[in-house]
Nucleic acid binder design. Sequence first.
RNA 1: UGAGUAAAUCGCCUUAUCGCUACGUUUUAUACGUGGAGGAAAGUCUGAACACCAUAGUGCAACGCAGUGGUUAACAGCCACCGGCCGAAAGGUUAGGAAAAGUGCAACAGAAAGAAUGUACGGGUAAUGCCGUAGUGAAAUCAGGUAAACUCUGUGCGGUGCAAUGCCAUGUAUACCAGUGCUUGAAAGCGGCACGUUUGAUUGCUGGAGGGUAGGCAGCUAGAGUGUUUUGGUAACAAAGCACCGAGAUAAAUGAUAAGGGUCACGCCAAGGCGUGAUACAGAAUUCGGCUUAUAGAUUUACUUAAACA
RNA 2: GGCGUCGUGGCCGAGUGGCUUAGGCACAGGUCUGCAAAACCUGCUACAGCGGUUCGAUUCCGCUCGACGCCU
Length: 123
Amino acid sequence: MKYTYSKKEKLKSKILIDQLFTEGQSVSAFPLRLVYLGITFNDDVIAKTGVSVSKRNFKTAVDRNRIKRLLREVYRLNKATYFNNLTTQHAFMILYIGKEKPTFTQIETSMKRLFEKFLNKVS
RNA sequence: UGAGUAAAUCGCCUUAUCGCUACGUUUUAUACGUGGAGGAAAGUCUGAACACCAUAGUGCAACGCAGUGGUUAACAGCCACCGGCCGAAAGGUUAGGAAAAGUGCAACAGAAAGAAUGUACGGGUAAUGCCGUAGUGAAAUCAGGUAAACUCUGUGCGGUGCAAUGCCAUGUAUACCAGUGCUUGAAAGCGGCACGUUUGAUUGCUGGAGGGUAGGCAGCUAGAGUGUUUUGGUAACAAAGCACCGAGAUAAAUGAUAAGGGUCACGCCAAGGCGUGAUACAGAAUUCGGCUUAUAGAUUUACUUAAACA
RNA sequence: GGCGUCGUGGCCGAGUGGCUUAGGCACAGGUCUGCAAAACCUGCUACAGCGGUUCGAUUCCGCUCGACGCCU
């Protein structure tokens, strides 16, 4: 698994997202929350992932874009170490539920904790 | 040098590694190359283009605008001039038509707020009428004030917005209930009403309660375009020549990390170094013109004024 | 992305160019009671913010902020 995060790996379909939020389960490691669902889709990837930041907590689009870019970047760099052993396809949505603007290292550490909790829960 | 006014511009940079996105070439695994946020992209307040509704028609209503002239595709914008207000000045600011068409309104105070001319004193007169002053109030006898009160005058204006609109794919319900209609015309053509006009029915129309889709392509970026020079014009702006092509995503790209540097502020210090901190507002979504609002800091030009020196 | 509606005390909510604003609920104090409830009396706190028009603005006008709704 390379350090990529292309269109195929992004969660884009409205149907999938609705399904994810109604049927999926979640784990959280503040300030992050992961909603996940084991599901099959046609593309040749192991996981489709999206990120989201609430407009309620961050008023300006610049702040929201910045956090979403950080979330995507950390996911891109760390997904290989955690998700190479997944056998079935999954859909993920990573939510930022904090109210403060984070740094790269803060997000990195909390996302690692988040993925460890997720793997423990699944296995 | 201090204080100030106006206009214009910039608004972090470089390298390395790892990525995202559009296009092109190669190949259909990928690899390489090129491009990739703003002055406000924001608010959606305006004016248009474009699309559909009739080639967008008529009248009323509603709404916008309002000194004069110019500019423009158009405008509530911009420019020049006149008048008002503010400032010592440079300059700033201005919803600036009509009260002699009509209706309304004016708290408190005041004799009186539009209907009368009251009181005191003085002048004047035979006397009254008359003239002046006083007091209340934002406004007091003036053909009064008020139109960001109704209104009148002039002028402009059809509606809806790219979630417009067209096509393809997937899927379903021409079912159910109520009302109504078929040439003596229901209803529709997205508008508040009327007229006019066009379409118009055994798969009609309206309402209710529901069922399905929610994917893709086009529209989608070469344009009232950008830069520059010359000419005309006080200016806004216009014309001509030359050069250039500068985003096109859709749970929504334009980034992350590391190192170095720049700028500013503060502190230290034989004076050009060291340390610390800061580096704004903010992210395209059909496209342009304007307005409004947010914005660390820096630069340039012109001007006013005060002091000093020559 | 586009279009629209609203903002009045702690809460609900009326109002309108003129005494900083009706009423209800809530809250606080008092009367009553052995104590409380009910009732009665008193008090408390407001026109989202900024600017303009006006003698005077919660009301009229402009801008900003916030909340909510609609579209396929």
